[in-house]
């Protein structure tokens, strides 16, 4: 039986207690997207500011949620700053493949599911760094949606930021 230590690694609790990049950005230039976890009522807001070269200039996270959704969002925000949108998409694929997200099992993923087509591609081999700490979530299937909520919301923001 997986224990709580598998789920709540120290680094996760640290990001939960001291979330990085909390707040808002002015829209425009930033885009704002919202994601909901219908299971638990959690809500994530992503503000994404992408410069003309397609690089993430800044990101802010709003909303409320459990330790898994909040720490995932916090680590994500730290990981994507300064990356190009293509790199962000590759990182997202990597993260979601670690979460074993396949459309057939998690297709009701929420608002960001439009972008999930990316999962069909082989997982990009992008190093996940601190995000590896969330690997234990896979052993708690109900919580996978908590971990992926921020990422789906981010993908939506990436789509919007690059739409025009």
């Amino acid at each position: 039986m997986p224990g709580l230590e598998d789920l709540y690694r120290e680094i996760i609790l640290d990001h939960y207690r001291n979330p990085r990049n909390r707040g808002e950005l002015e829209t425009p230039p930033a885009v704002r997207t919202e994601g909901f976890n219908p299971l638990c009522g959690d809500e994530i807001v992503v503000y994404l500011d992408v410069d003309d070269d397609g690089t993430v200039r800044d990101i802010r996270i709003g909303g409320t949620g459990c330790s898994i959704s909040q720490s995932s969002a916090s680590m994500m925000s730290a990981a994507v700053k300064g990356k190009t949108i293509d790199e962000v998409r590759a990182l997202t694929r990597s993260f979601k493949s670690m979460m074993s997200v396949h459309e057939s099992t998690l297709d009701a993923e929420g608002e960001g599911s439009e972008s999930d087509g990316a999962d069909a591609e082989p997982a990009a081999d992008v190093p996940l760094g601190d995000l590896e700490a969330l690997r234990g979530v896979v052993k708690f299937p109900v919580r996978i949606k908590c971990a992926t909520l921020a990422w789906n919301t981010l993908l939506q923001a990436a789509d919007e930021a690059t739409a025009d």
Binding site: G3, L4, Y8, C66, I68, R143
Partner: peptide, 12 residues
């Protein structure tokens, strides 16, 4: 403690 985390610990 978020309710989701709370319920998870309680489940254990």
């Amino acid at each position: 403690v978020h309710p989701h985390d709370l319920s998870q610990v309680l489940d254990q």
